[in-house]
């Protein structure tokens, strides 16, 4: 553990808050009228998966938690958690639904992910910059519509709905930014 101040806070960092490990899922500065600066955060409890807002005084300190990443393979869904396997030890870990945030719709069985581990518990995954997924439902782009920037929506193999350019067809493999859900390129 190391002590940091709000100046070092970043989205995706893990801190101890009220004796419970939390993930910072969002942060921004607030300046109340006629007041000093504050840092408003959204914190996800690693115990309950619940998100709460808390506003820190600018410069306030907190304990940053040591989180390791391990490469694991995603296996299957089990009630409201997701089962991953460590590729070296073959040990299995469950990650609860709340801790996977918006990534669930991009999870593909047998693919490898960087899993975040705190102590002996898997507490989330590090979002890859890009995920490659196959288009499984797509309508033909309207003929003659060559206006630059025209778009349509398609469904990919994991069920996510993505807005893409008209030239994307059924069976294409496309790159998506999982952070924003935006189409990046065709494979």
């Amino acid at each position: 553990m190391s002590t940091i101040t709000t100046a070092q806070f970043k989205k995706g960092m893990f801190i101890e808050f009220k004796d419970v490990p939390h993930l910072i899922t969002d942060m921004q500065f607030v300046n109340p009228g006629k007041g000093s600066a504050f840092v408003r955060t959204k914190l996800r409890s690693l115990k309950t998966g619940k998100v709460q807002e808390f506003t820190f005084k600018s410069g306030e300190s907190a304990e940053e938690l040591p989180i390791n990443t391990r490469e694991m393979q995603y296996l299957y869904k089990e009630s409201d958690s997701y089962v991953f396997m460590d590729n070296f030890s073959y040990e299995q870990y469950n990650i609860s639904e709340g801790l996977l945030e918006g990534f669930i719709k991009y999870l593909k069985p047998n693919d490898a992910y960087q899993v975040l581990v705190y102590g002996e518990e898997a507490v989330g995954i590090r979002f890859p910059k890009k995920v490659w997924l196959k288009v499984t439902e797509a309508e033909e782009g309207a003929k003659g519509n060559t206006a630059s920037g025209a778009t349509k929506t398609v469904v990919v193999e994991t069920g996510a709905v993505i807005t893409v350019p008209l030239f994307i067809k059924f069976g294409d493999v496309i790159g998506i930014d999982p952070e924003t859900g935006t189409y990046l390129e065709r494979g």
């Binding site: 109340p32 007041g35 000093s36 504050f38 408003r40 807002e53 506003t55 820190f56 005084k57």
Partner: peptide, 14 residues
């Protein structure tokens, strides 16, 4: 070093 104004605003904001 915490000032009264900081406590006031922190409670207000939270």
């Amino acid at each position: 070093k915490t000032t009264w104004e900081e406590l006031y605003n922190q409670i207000f904001l939270n």
